[in-house]
Design a protein around this nucleic acid. Structure first.
Lengths: 252, 252
DNA sequence: CCTACCGATCGGTAGG
DNA sequence: CCTACCGATCGGTAGG
């Protein structure tokens, strides 16, 4: 249960890390109350662009926008959505608060994009597994392993996906809730298939079993450490062993 | 994954529910942004007390204090600590914001008392199970069932215990982290015992198995519904079955 | 991307 | 437990 050490961790996920933001800025241990940050050190001016700043409304899809998303993901994961201010994000990126709005529409929209793109990755692996011709037990094992793989790619994003979606409102929230339940259904279908085909225990309570597996999987985002001794594949394999074979010896 | 319906739910836990606060006030569906609440309807004056208000510094341990804790627990669970304002709590209780401070010391202290008293309940059942003379498998089953029982007593409090503790700072945080890891140890000890005595699979990865069980248990606070069709004992039993015997048929 | 700033809201207090 | 209020901070915008 050391889910929130102050160690700065890359957001992983095949993207460059934000340049020139203060290391260790706004980690959980130092946040709130009263630990107000100082003025962000301006990042070194990058190569001059034809126009020094985008016009309002112009679609901005550049490097900076990606950095903002990465830092917001990290901060929302560590401090929660409501516990993260736009000033926290600006400081982490190396901008002044108002400058964020050239790149993004607002705080809630930032959350929505993080949550939705995150959950889409989980839906993608569920789709892949469903399309494979494997049997239910192999499907479940594959889905567990793939899930751990997505968590390991970016644990903070996973925390945001599974906890911070509550701060969304209106139809954004509805869309996310729908996608979450679609992911849950993927597990339900596989386990129902396996129960009917006899590879899973016939007395198995579908509802409780699905939620037990999902609970174990969601929790991985809280304890997974990229610098741990075990590979992602090993962790997934062992998690699948525990959930599928159980703790008791087969004899008992 | 319907963990956040707008339905108002009693805080359970053998205490009277707050009188005279607006039903449905500040539920998740209506929170933020821009949904600012109106002035709280004053609760009907209770029987006159000898003194109409306590002096500052005087220890207040009365009814109102308990209602404040119950409402804060509910709100912290539903909206998160950072997403809940003292004004939210005051409105739910039926006071004006400043009046809360006759009963409590401050927001963070309120969180600490909720988290610590909550985690103490989990430690108490772990102690009880450890002292029982049962074998490791029976101990684990009992602990799983007791855990579900504590969750069912007050799901919101459990959500606060397992997620909102991150907002604590300083030694309060350290104390809570220590208690959390003590609870984790209780599971580790039982499962280690069971593995050595041969009742649990010898190839079992202790770390992953402990975290899988804890994950499944922590998740119950997100989906448990007091008005569901299954009794708490049944849910605990089925969760223990799933985790201990696994999903596969014993034959396979 | 910065300067400069807005109105709203925050946790909390003085004083009765 | 209320009235009245504080200084700090919030998300966000105008204009260049």
């Amino acid at each position: 249960m050391t889910a929130c050490g102050p160690a700065r961790r890359s957001t992983g996920d095949d993207r460059p890390v934000a340049p020139g933001h203060a290391p260790g800025a706004a980690t959980l241990a130092t946040v709130r109350p009263g630990s107000r940050r100082v003025r962000p050190s301006r990042p070194p001016p990058t190569e001059p662009s034809p126009r020094r700043w985008a016009m309002p409304g112009e679609p901005v899809v550049g490097r900076t926008r990606q950095i903002i998303f990465d830092e917001a993901t990290r901060l929302f994961g560590a401090q929660g959505y409501a516990g993260t201010t736009m000033r926290d994000i600006a400081t982490a990126v190396g901008l002044l608060p108002g400058s964020l709005y050239t790149h993004i529409q607002g705080k809630e929209n930032l959350l929505l994009e993080i949550v939705e793109s995150g959950i889409d990755r989980f839906l993608a692996i569920a789709d892949g597994v469903a399309r494979s011709g494997a049997g239910p037990d192999q499907k479940l094992r594959a889905l567990i392993k793939d899930h751990v793989g997505v968590v390991a790619q970016n644990p903070e994003r996973t925390l945001v996906v599974f906890h911070q979606w509550r701060y969304l409102t209106g139809e954004a929230r509805e869309r996310v809730v729908e996608k979450r339940s679609r992911y849950e259904d993927a597990f339900r279908k596989i386990m129902n298939q396996g129960r009917r085909s006899g590879v899973f225990a016939p007395g198995l309570d579908l509802k409780v079993s699905v939620l037990a597996v999902l609970g174990a999987l969601n929790w991985t985002a809280e304890w997974y450490r990229p610098d741990g001794p075990d590979t992602v594949a090993e962790i997934g394999e062992r998690l699948a062993d525990t959930l599928m074979s159980g703790l008791l010896t087969r004899a008992s």
